[in-house]
Design a protein around this nucleic acid. Sequence first.
DNA 1: TTAAGATATCGATAGTTGTCAATATCCACA
DNA 2: TGTGGATATTGACAACTATCGATATCTTAA
Lengths: 114, 114
Amino acid sequence: MAPKNLKAEAVSKVCCGKARDIPLSERDADELAAVFTALSDPVRLRLLSIISSASEGEVCACDLVAPIGKSQPTVSHHLKILFEAGLVDREKRGVWVWYWAVPERIKAVASRLR
Amino acid sequence: MAPKNLKAEAVSKVCCGKARDIPLSERDADELAAVFTALSDPVRLRLLSIISSASEGEVCACDLVAPIGKSQPTVSHHLKILFEAGLVDREKRGVWVWYWAVPERIKAVASRLR
DNA sequence: TTAAGATATCGATAGTTGTCAATATCCACA
DNA sequence: TGTGGATATTGACAACTATCGATATCTTAA
């Protein structure tokens, strides 16, 4: 709150006008908020950063526990949230589960922020 | 989890390797997560959409309560969170407070998602 | 079939968050 | 100076979330 151009400018604008339509619908807002919720945790952001930058394009879940420094159930929980948000995909191969990023989804979210 | 290319492919990759560095630092992850937390609520996303699309570039807080359909304290609370996240700026003029978006900040966040 | 290991789920708990009524603060105007 | 109105803050409460230990599920190998 910097300058103090008071009454003159304040009154120069019509204030408290009629309620316009909100650009973002309630449904869209709910969906977008759900994705941002998935992105709102530092552990998940770090998991996503590891998965996205994997040199082979994918990462074994077994390689995600140690670097994160949380328990295995906690990491599994966060991976599930990323998966359900559509930010990563996964596939079970034998005993292991491999995760990879979904760039289209990530870009789609980013484009909503412009 | 679709195909079943079991042992062969599963073993073809070295799994459970050594912990690499995480691309996203803990500090950066915390900061990014804080912004995404601000974006993780549908009411705040709708507020931001109204503010961002304001024809005059800014909106009076008094015009934000009715369309959102929440109480005045609730809207004030959400506006504060958007402000503290750097997503909007504001200025008090007389009795009213005007809000406008901070596109550079919004773009900066979007670019982190690419 | 059994054993061992990787991952997911469950149950519990502490901490966080969205919401509103009540109240405080701030400002213009009479 | 005091009154009315716009916005912010406070206090309280219900709902949600991150975390972990314990356990279940699934898969390979013996």
